[in-house]
Simulated scan of single mutants.
Amino acid sequence: MTAAHDLSHELSVASGVAREAGALLQAHLRAGFTVEHKTSADDPVTVADREASTLIMTALAAAFPDDGLLSEEETDDRARLNHDRVWIVDPIDGTREYSTGLPDYCVSIGLAVGGQPVLGVVYAPETDELFTGVVGQGAFLNGQPVPAPHSGPDWRIAVSDTEHRRELHATPLSGMKPSGSIALKLARIAAAQADATFTMSPRSEWDIAAGHALLRAAGGDLTRRDGRAITYNQPRPHVEQGLIGGQPRAAAWLGDQLRALHLPTAHLGVQAHEPAWSVLKPADRAALQGHPGVNVRHADGQLLALLIVHPDTRQVQRAEGDAFHLDRLTRDVTRALGTVSVGTVAVGAVQS
């Protein structure tokens, strides 16, 4: 497999620049900074994000000039689509935690080859934990091999603190441990500090590429909530639905629990060939086929909210669902697309 190639130089460069970026982040914390927001209060950004991104991208470009680059904080250079090897970077995963003085943030640097995550480096500056790994060669924490996975059955489930605060706190799922950065969640699962994770909302490639590589290096995996694989370096670098992953036995148990509890997930831009299409009523399946702006929130075959957005104007053409699920879906669409305009579209219950 591709990951069996010698990536020791790549791992060394990525590890070194991750530590440099971590030092820069801590320097900004000491000096103070202003917090801005991209699409909403849930999507903060700081000068530290931008400077760390510049530092990392400059170093990677100098060391690997023939590779593609993708960072959350840089204008997307579509030339990356012509590269088999692409570095996928989040200079701060967990900016909300970072900007509010919480320790649950990290620097995340992943390498995808042929669309597959093969190398991951996640550095947590507050705890000085450097998680590194190459698929086929194992995962390490501060240079030491990670322990064997937890054997259960008391599985430790890492969940989003935001999702836990808004709705998961009322869910009878045992073993939930809320935290911020998903990259750090995946790294900690790879290091046997937790066992599995899932999200209700979509994530972007830069959020998960490094952590996914670490998880694979440690014998686990990460997929979409509907079980389909994740391929990186896509034209639109966003995974359009919630995720589930972890060590195999824990992830299998978790999948059974999510289905039994009917826990929702969003699916943005759902298409006719995808499982979530079946939650639409038959008339909509016929009328909306090929429409790129069909967004749903669903659970176990039941449609909870529907938001149809014009792909060019971002005008909401139709909105259905109860207030809570429609609000969650609207937040997910806004974060993925930017502001959407509801205009005079009526919002009502999902029609059966």
Rank of each mutant, 00 (worst) to 15 (best):
G22T: 05
G22N: 08
G22Q: 04
Q26V: 00
A27G: 08
H28E: 08
L29C: 08
L29Q: 13
L29Y: 00
R30K: 15
A31F: 01
F33T: 01
T34C: 03
T34I: 10
T34D: 15
V35R: 14
V35S: 03
T39R: 12
T39H: 14
T39D: 04
S40E: 04
S40Y: 08
A41F: 03
D42R: 13
D42L: 13
D42C: 01
D43F: 12
P44Y: 08
T46M: 08
V47C: 04
V47R: 13
V47W: 01
A48W: 01
R50Q: 10
E51A: 12
S53Q: 11
S53Y: 03
T54D: 15
L55V: 11
L55C: 10
M57I: 11
A59N: 09
A59M: 04
A59H: 13
A59P: 02
L60N: 01
A61W: 01
A61K: 14
A61F: 02
A61C: 07
A62H: 14
A63K: 07
F64R: 09
D66K: 10
G68T: 07
G68D: 09
L69T: 01
L69P: 01
L70N: 04
E72A: 13
E74F: 04
D76T: 14
R78P: 00
R78S: 10
A79K: 13
R80D: 11
L81M: 09
N82G: 11
N82D: 15
H83Y: 07
V86Q: 06
W87L: 01
I88D: 10
V89N: 03
V89W: 02
I92D: 01
I92Y: 03
T95I: 07
E97I: 00
Y98D: 05
P103H: 07
D104H: 13
C106L: 12
S108G: 09
I109A: 05
I109W: 02
I109V: 14
I109D: 01
I109T: 03
G110T: 09
L111K: 05
L111E: 03
A112D: 05
V113I: 13
Q116T: 09
Q116M: 05
V118E: 11
L119G: 03
L119H: 09
L119P: 06
